[in-house]
Nucleic acid binder design. Structure first.
Lengths: 222, 222
DNA sequence: GGGCGTCGTTATCGATTGATAATAACGCTA
DNA sequence: TAGCGTTATTATCAATCGATAACGACGCCC
């Protein structure tokens, strides 16, 4: 045993049954913070003490990993906003619809604060045409966009929602609701405040309801 | 002449007196579209038919090129919004201030449409802490942030501006005003419309004035 | 018009990237 | 417990990155 003591050393092996999820969540954070090109597969692996080739084993490629991350995030968003979808609001009157939309808006703000990676990835990808952008828009963004459209149009014609083109409103809403969390590092440098603090999130949701649904009398903010 | 005809071929040389500006504007576009890491110095040079080492000759490094690009863009923004700065609005009454702010808001929307690279770069950088973000925030963003603060506070206490925390309002405003242009490629895929079209920009500016300055009676939209 | 300074062009450097082949540790089943 | 399938680990590949050295074309000045 002496002679072969330190050459061909024993390999340490670390098995984690949840390694796929661990790698996926690390990828979310890195893709959100640095963009697809800026995130390296080595840094994604390193931040969860894994090895870079594990990414190619558990996912097919960096691009497939990105796709899995985006699928996962939009799945979470869909769960969060299920009650605002057209099928759920079919029989409601306008007043009930307004209350549901206000609640959905507040929850969207909460989601953007809790999972900033989704809007970070969207804004990184949206700046340049690419196959990734085309896929993400057709697969996830467009259905979401179309799902909230009828409710908004109804509230607008009832004088509750602000009189704004839906396409413009959509970007005003997404931009206004997500930027503090997308750019949280900048917010901390600029204001000294933490946008993830419950007080910020609450005030932010209240503000968006007030300016986008001005016809909703005294918004109950539960 | 025959024997040495095609070996050691004559070098073509292209001199452009404005090469610095040409490279700088190419860098703006690439940094805005792909972020600092995603933009390669070769692609910046190639899109204006220049060579990659010219960037290191005319600028010190990729980082210095990025700095020069950001300086240039904030210079343009400062020119565009000079009349909204505190020194220019010192003696005005609240009604005049409201009109000036509404105009400034519309011009900010126009600027974001004309020079989307500024907000693209800001949103790319703001997603992760870095020396670049610290420098940009301290040098350019903070002065801008502080400059519009007193005017907003005055309008808010006069009941003209929406009753929102200034720090939150700032991000609501920037996000709502810039996202359609930051993510113009996505807008085209999602809506089929061009956010750079004058009709979109006009409607967008009107919408922001309406929701952020609700106390401004019938906004003259010249 | 000869010399020199500026700067465009080419070639190449070491570092890092995503991907993959080679090896080996572990768990399950027979 | 022997064998095998799964997958963690190591090593390495070609491609691309930013940077720089080497070379040469051009314009200006004396």
């Amino acid at each position: 045993m002496q002679g072969m003591a330190d050459r061909n050393p024993v390999r340490q092996r670390r098995a984690r049954p949840d390694i796929r999820e661990v790698l996926l969540e690390s990828a979310l954070v890195e893709f959100g913070a640095k963009g697809f090109d800026g995130a390296s597969t080595r840094s994604i692996a390193r931040r969860v003490e894994a090895h870079q080739p594990q990414l190619n084993y558990h996912f097919e490629s960096k691009a497939a990993l990105w796709t899995a991350a985006v699928d996962y995030l939009f799945g979470l968003l869909g769960e969060e906003l299920a009650d605002v979808l057209p099928t759920e609001i079919a029989g409601l009157d306008v007043s009930q619809l307004a209350t549901i939309f206000a609640g959905g808006l507040r929850r969207f703000v909460g989601f953007a604060a809790k999972h900033p990676e989704l809007n970070q990835i969207m804004v990184h990808e949206g700046t340049a045409a690419s196959d990734r952008l085309e896929w993400m828009t057709a697969t996830h963004v467009k259905p979401f966009f179309e799902a909230i459209k009828p409710g908004w149009l109804l509230l607008r014609s009832a004088g509750i929602a602000a009189p704004i083109d839906f396409e413009i409103l959509y970007y005003v809403l997404i931009g206004a609701a997500s930027l503090p969390y997308v750019n949280a590092p900048e917010v901390r440098l600029l204001t000294g405040r933490d946008p993830k603090h419950p007080d910020w999130i609450k005030a932010h949701g209240d503000a968006l309801v007030a300016i986008l649904l001005p016809g909703l009398a005294a918004a109950p903010s539960g």
